[in-house]
Structure formats: C-alpha cells, structure tokens
Amino acid sequence: MDVLAIENLNVTFRTDEGIKHAVRDVSFTLNNEKLAIVGESGSGKSTVGKAILRLNPPSTLVTADALRFGETDLLACNEKAIRAIRGQHISMIMQDPKFSLNPVMTVGEQIAEALSVHRRISKREARLAALEMLKEVSIADPEHVYGQYPHEISGGMGQRIMIAMMVIPEPDIIIADEPTSALDVSVQQDVLNILTRLIEKKNISLIFISHDLNLVKKFCDHVLVMYGGRVVESIRADALSNASHPYTRGLMESLPSLRHRRDVLPVMTRDQNWLTQDYTP
C-alpha cells in the first residue's frame, strides 16, 4: 500500500483574468521515501503540496482521479476530517519560520501544543516531550530555548523548531516547502541533516518542494521536475546528471559552477511542446 497516491491531479484558480490552470495531470506515488518536487516559480510545485492538504484558497478547484492517503480518500474528506489529518498524519514545513511561528507564545509551548492537540497527555508530559524533541533537533540548551520567543531566535534555529513541531506528533508524511531557501548555506546543511535523521528514525515519508536541483540531487531519493504545471520528468535523484528532458538539463547547466567556470552560461530556450507533451517514465 502506498503512503500517498495521486493520479491526474488538476488544480485551477479563478482569477480576475479568467481561469488559471496551475497544475495539470500530475500523478505520483509516495512510498516511504524522500520525494522532491522541483521547478521554477510558477511551475505549480507549491500548489501540489498545498492541494494534498487542501490548503489552497477557496477560489481553487482541485480535481483528481485519485488523491489517496493510505486508505483515506482526501478529496472526499470534509473540513473536519481533513483537519484531523493535517498535523497528525500529514504536516507541512513552510519556507520562513518567521511567519509560521506564533509570535506571542514561547517556542517550547508551541512544540508542546503541537503534540497535545493530537494526543491526550498532561501538560508535564507534553513539556518533557517537547524538551526531548528540542534535543533531537540538536539544540544545545533545550531548557533555555523552550522559554524563548520566536523573535529571539535565529532563522536556522527557527527552522529547527518548525521541524520539531512538525515531527513531534509523528506524522506519516511531511511536506517541506522550500524549508531551507531562507537560510544561509552553512545552516542549510545542518537543518537538512537534522531533518533526514529524524524522518529516517521515525519512518516518515517526505515531500520536499524546492527550486534547487543541486540540493535535491544529494538529499532526496526521487525527483519530479515540474514545468508550467506539468511533471516533465520523473527520475531517480542519483540519475539526475543523466536527465533526458531538455528542461531538467537546462536547469542543471544554467547554474554557475565553481569547478567549471564558463564565460557565458548556457541559456535555456523554452519549447512550447514541453507544456503539452507527456513525459515517458
């Protein structure tokens, strides 16, 4: 049984300019792995992540042949059922912890609350579990950090706390939407290492949404490359260097490289066919 199965997911927005088709016929299955969804801005990668948790704005129409989480049909869920799934079974890590953390609550309380809304436990137990979790995300002085407010901590620390909050209810899937792009490179690595260690330990599947092919290549198992709302390539991460789709190759090549400096960077010419042709898995 797949943890998550999506068949022909379509998402459309109603805007002033008319109907915008943001995601077209996206299908994939997630099976206890680290799956990356990669694309540039406007490719629909974040919309896919939000559609799974039904977090899109109300003017959005989500249709799919199947959108199954284990046995549950996510499309058939009512608002109450989907809320029970959010957080407890599928949780989401956003790009910037500054906007995701509650500014008037200490970070420790927020972690403890993330646990106590899903499980009936005493305050003391929740606090102990939160402290334990802070230790797990490599925070040196958990007691001290527990009492701090979000504005008192750095971006990297904030993202670790977000991870702690998302991991503590032990969900089945974590959707991470650009979790490291607001962080400095040196901190990025630490945060990713922590995330990897925790999800492997707790057996969590990961959907990693990113624009950074290089990062994904090292960090994930499987990669979906999206362009214009479509998946143009689905490939194992270690095979990315031999990607077949010109878009994927273009993305890889257009990055300036320290090792092989070129005087002129190759520039992609986009092909209208990419928007219509189906990829062959």
Binding site: S41, L265, V267
Partner: peptide, 14 residues
Amino acid sequence: LDVSVQAEILNLLA
C-alpha cells in the same frame, strides 16, 4: 530570480 533567468542576467551583466 529563477536559475534559468539568473543565467541570463549574469550573462547580460558580464
């Protein structure tokens, strides 16, 4: 900017 656009702008600047 996106990486593909970044490449164009870097080329332009160069």
